[in-house]
Design a protein around this nucleic acid. Structure first.
Lengths: 233, 233
DNA sequence: ATGAGCAGATAGTAGCACTATCGATAGTGC
DNA sequence: GCACTATCGATAGTGCTACTATCTGCTCAT
């Protein structure tokens, strides 16, 4: 398979594929001569994975490169999990925004303290460099700084319960895979795409719950039950 | 309060504040003369909200502008919810990537069908333009296209259960607010920041669950229970 | 042997989130 | 009154990211 065929097979333009090769998103093809190379099914599935990470997962090219790099070097599964997690960190700005004072360990913020307590109460044992820790703590601190009432313990615990639920499902679905290389791909894709799936479902559940709690005042347009039995008017 | 004071109060540079004024992220101050204006506490809290949306929520300036625009026009609460939801759509690329064939209604994808069935089984009634619908459907379709086994019904249902849990918590915490304008701000902040919080907690829960399922082979570095009783080495 | 295709390199583009500067004014300390 | 700083609005520039275009040798099928 040559590059133009790889391009038509994946729907990605040839210059973009070259760009991906340069950026280490795509492993090089097998050289047949100094300026010819052969690509195969592994390249097709890699390109598809990369597009999924970029488009659906919202990762930057650099983040995606770290994820696929973890797949190529055959790390233990738990490491792939860690790398995938660390590569994502939803808002890219946060990935590096929390380490400003590296020398003097500052006092923990209120959010950090609460998250630590939450881990304690839930029995969550994790490495201190887990990217979720600053992420969650930052949200709590930000919320408090906004001057609206802070996130209550009961709400936070609901979120934690929900996180436990999906994490158990995530791990169960990984454990169901039998082949190792497919397992790592599942971990990478699942970690990244799971965030998006959960966010999407949350939108739906929010709106549904909103209608249950605050019924529409009058005979306003009632929502349908699905997206299929509708046509846009 | 003048612009430079607003700047020091919020930690945002003056040129950036001007930029926010131009981009409708910040409402204009009260004019005292053709080239003087007074700012007040509402501007401080607005800037803080905007920074939270941009930095923690990961929104683009245009998305944040839509959210704060919804706050300014005093829409009913349910509309604020909708606008905040529609402004986010985690990966910005997806917000407009799903409408390519506007004239001919295409056959629904497998993912759309599954999400519709999920809404049915959960009793979720939502508008067909809920942004979560294409988001979730797209994830399912993408996952299937990757060639790994698709997301099982039990996993999907776990995610839906988790979504229900946090949505109920979200609505409950909104209902607990008494003042209306604060309520809308709570909705906006909660919708956007909730995604990030949930993603962070998911990372933590995943790692904790991973250690439960796949204990470390040997006397490898055992994870601590929190981020507080640790120092980086 | 010739024209299309390829690899690698360099350079260019579009969009985004600011950031810098300018000219004309307005308020502040002395 | 007068220097001096600050402000407004406008325009233009910067740095980064994700591509995209072009050019130069090559190589392979016809």
């Amino acid at each position: 398979m040559r590059m133009s065929e790889l391009s038509t097979a994946t729907g990605v333009a040839v210059p973009t594929l070259k760009f991906y090769l340069r950026e280490q998103l795509l492993h090089a093809g097998e050289r047949t001569s100094p300026n010819q190379a052969q690509y195969d099914a592994s390249h097709v599935e890699r390109v598809r994975l990369v597009r999924a990470l970029l488009e659906v997962g919202g990762l930057s090219v650099a983040q995606a490169a770290r994820v696929v790099g973890a797949l190529d070097s055959d790390l233990p599964l738990s490491s792939v999990f860690g790398v995938a997690q660390r590569a994502v960190s939803i808002p890219a700005a946060l990935a590096s925004a929390d380490d400003e004072a590296t020398d003097a360990e500052p006092a923990p913020t209120a959010g950090q303290t609460r998250i630590a307590a939450l881990c304690e109460s839930r029995g969550w044992r994790v490495y201190p460099n887990n990217p979720g820790l600053p992420l969650a703590a930052r949200v709590l601190d930000t919320y408090a700084a906004l001057g609206l009432g802070h996130i209550s313990d009961t709400v936070l615990d609901r979120y934690a319960q929900a996180a436990d639920l999906v994490a158990a499902a995530d791990l169960a679905s990984v454990a169901a895979v039998d082949e190792l290389t497919e397992m790592t791909r599942t971990v990478a894709a699942g970690t990244v795409l799971g965030d998006t799936l959960l966010a999407g479902l949350r939108r739906i559940a929010q709106e549904a719950e909103s209608f249950r709690r605050f019924p529409l005042p009058d005979g306003a347009p009632a929502p349908g039950t699905s997206l299929l039995d509708e046509q846009d008017c």
